[in-house]
Design a protein around this nucleic acid. Structure first.
Lengths: 414, 414
DNA sequence: CTCATTTGCGCAATCGGTTTCGCAAATTTT
DNA sequence: AAAATTTGCGAAACCGATTGCGCAAATGAG
């Protein structure tokens, strides 16, 4: 590996000249330029990244901590993150922690030790200590997808889990269900509790007691979904529907349902969450809440680059609207039993219930707004920090990549 | 950010002492130790990774170049790679190129400029130039999953694509199919051509002309699978079966089949490749070739670390046996039509045809062996380099992994 | 109580770049 | 043609670690 010194020697100039010329900070005479170019080409010189970063105090990469890269939901987010970061000319150091706190902690330490310029964090409640330490150490961090309470001064972008839960449950209520179970990932997760809050509120609004419902927290795996089904149907009065707050889990449950001879949606309606790609390939096609993963990634990366450029305002949380996607896995309750018992009250299979399940509830922490069911990409205002009623645009419109320091938009109002 | 100098000053010692002590290369007096520890704790000292790497000439990370991280097949491999590398105490720099040659090239350049100690490469034919340059530049590279021709001095580990294709096609032939289409990813890929070779040989063995069959190369997406179905059935004598050399594609096709009212396997049998997790969750459950992704990752990482340690022998290619997983998506041809036309020749639905479709063909480049259908983790000998008939263990048992040098399994037979 | 070891620790070079400062030559101004 | 600028380029400090070498003190042997 040729060094800058080698190039300098070959070209008969000083190393500093090579450096500055290569970085476009120096004009040289045509003669010098030719020798320089020749030397670089001849030696196949490529600047050493470590040395450059050491000298510059930057690293040219951002880290992305994610629980499990083999989970297609996270994989998709990662893909979009990579895409967005690359557009800015940086690289992504992707860290799959496999949900192990130890790994997460060591990764954060590793990353915080100068390996990266900033970090996108998608994780759980654990290891906040390290994370907080890293943040205090000056590492720009943006939290994505999984809301984390009690993290000071951190920008974040999350799905509107509350609204999603509300929509899903409202839909099931509107279909006529009265016993609606809640199946989810780890109960400690912010996203899970938010989805559950929404679900509960929708039930209450429908005159149903949420406390009387079955609640099955678990893990983000299909195995858990498969194992949850029997438990769901074990009781004397099993639910006729389940809000499964993760498509990944829901797919496992759907599979188990077929194995157990449970028909979906006739015997059990299922509404998922995330709308991962496979949800449209299973039978019945999964009715679910679509999370705008690409926007999440884009906004998260934008936020991080704003922080890196120092142009980010005070910490705020962007909440992304979600959308109910009606497919086939949810229908009127007891479509089979009802046919025998009652009159043909709910005959149709392809259900077309109140398409706007409800005028959407208030967002979790703060202001009203919403009707998130609408596909229109509305942004909900930042609930955490300054919820200024003024028309301050919540998400600064991705002004400018770091390399071209111009920031045309968002004229400062002074 | 505190530096080592700060710590040294605070503890009243030299920086070198701090460095050596922290790296366990120096015993110090209890008094010094206490002061050292205090200083480190008080300042919250974390060594700067860049500087360390620069001084050491290493980087502590390995790169993994992969075409598309949102594809669950690659995602799963990535997960296992991360796991295996972490066990060795290093990190993974994951690069999703989204199959774009430009990105791949720039990533390789970036990685080759000292950012990583070694590289796992999963990619296509493109950008070989850069890759070759990087290899010549001294970067240890191990090629995984996707065979690449004409890469000198590179260790690699791939699936036995040929055997997989042979098994899949043999199975369909054994079921009685005579018109068997071949649907796959990009035709230029080594894995695709290998799978096709196996498929062709199996057809020939069954007395079928491979040239007369429909062949549909495309991309590794479900969309392609969905679009392939109509084209498959367009002709006057459509195939009764398809070997779809990627589960991802097969899932798209299965979905399209239902949409078009094509019953699987009655109207069309489908055999996939990879056995991604979702293949068991779709209906009908996908009959497919299982690729041992975890072993692939483990062996690839082992090879890379051998190369890093300098204990790797000459370049060789490890070929991993694959396994036919019989599920529901393939059955006798014309199960519906036949019922009317012929006698009840092939009545059963759950087919139990020759469970060992054939005594497995010779491996692609070289020696006989195989019966890859057996789940037993046999390793096929290296076909590329020295195919010594001597009992030289093909995969050198990773003599000394850097951090935890113990490797209990696979007792060396000497 | 010497002499030979070992042990604990500091000095300074090194890794491969970047960057400030400043000199000398080339160019422009009067 | 002399003075004032501008331009091209080199010397050296620096980023934050690691590491070879060497010295002094503590330890052991005789």
């Amino acid at each position: 590996m040729a060094t800058i010194q080698d190039v300098a020697k070959a070209a008969g100039v000083a190393a500093s000249t090579v450096s500055r010329y290569l970085n476009g900070q120096l004009r040289v005479t045509p003669a010098t330029e030719a020798r320089l170019l020749d030397a670089v080409a001849a030696l196949g010189y490529v600047p050493n990244a470590q040395a450059k970063n050491l000298a510059r105090g930057r690293s040219g990469a951002i880290g992305f901590v994610v629980p499990d890269i083999s989970n297609p939901y996270f994989g998709t987010i990662a893909d979009h993150v990579v895409e967005a970061v690359e557009r800015r000319g940086l690289m992504v150091l992707l860290c799959s922690t496999r949900s192990q706190a130890v790994k997460e902690a060591s990764y954060i330490d590793l990353l915080a030790s100068g390996a990266i310029d900033g970090m996108l964090y998608l994780g759980s409640f654990r290891s906040n200590v390290r994370l907080v330490a890293a943040i205090h150490g000056g590492l720009p961090v943006v939290v994505v997808d999984e809301p984390i309470a009690g993290l000071p001064d951190v920008h974040s972008v999350v799905m509107d889990d509350y609204a999603g839960g509300y929509q899903a449950a409202s839909y099931l209520v509107a279909l006529g269900h009265r016993r609606i179970a809640f199946v989810s990932g780890p109960a400690e997760l912010g996203s899970v509790t938010e989805r559950r809050r929404g679900y509960c509120d929708a039930l209450v609004k429908g005159g149903i007691d949420p406390e009387a419902q079955l609640s099955l927290p678990g893990h983000f795996t299909e195995q858990f979904g498969a194992s949850a089904l029997p438990r769901l149907l074990a009781g004397p009065e099993p639910p006729t529907a389940a809000f499964v707050a993760s498509d990944y889990i829901a797919l496992g449950m759907l599979s188990a349902a077929e194995t157990h001879g449970i028909r979906v949606p006739e015997d059990l309606s299922v509404v998922g969450f995330d709308d991962i790609r496979f949800s449209q390939y299973v039978r019945p096609r999964l009715t679910t809440i679509r999370s705008p993963v690409e926007r999440l990634a884009q906004i998260g990366v934008d936020m991080l680059f704003d922080r890196l450029a120092g142009t980010a305002g005070p910490a705020r949380t962007e909440v992304l609207p979600v959308e109910l996607i009606v497919r086939e896995s949810a229908g009127p309750p007891g479509a089979a039993a009802a046919r025998a018992a009652r009159t043909g009250t709910a005959p149709a299979h392809s259900p077309a219930p109140p398409d706007s399940p409800a005028p959407a509830p208030p967002r979790s922490p703060a202001p009203a707004s919403a009707h998130s069911a609408a596909p229109a990409p509305r942004r909900s205002p930042a609930p955490a920090s300054a919820h200024s009623p003024a028309p301050a645009p919540p998400h600064s419109p991705a002004p400018a990549p770091p390399h071209s320091p111009v920031r045309p938009k968002e004229s400062e109002v002074t």
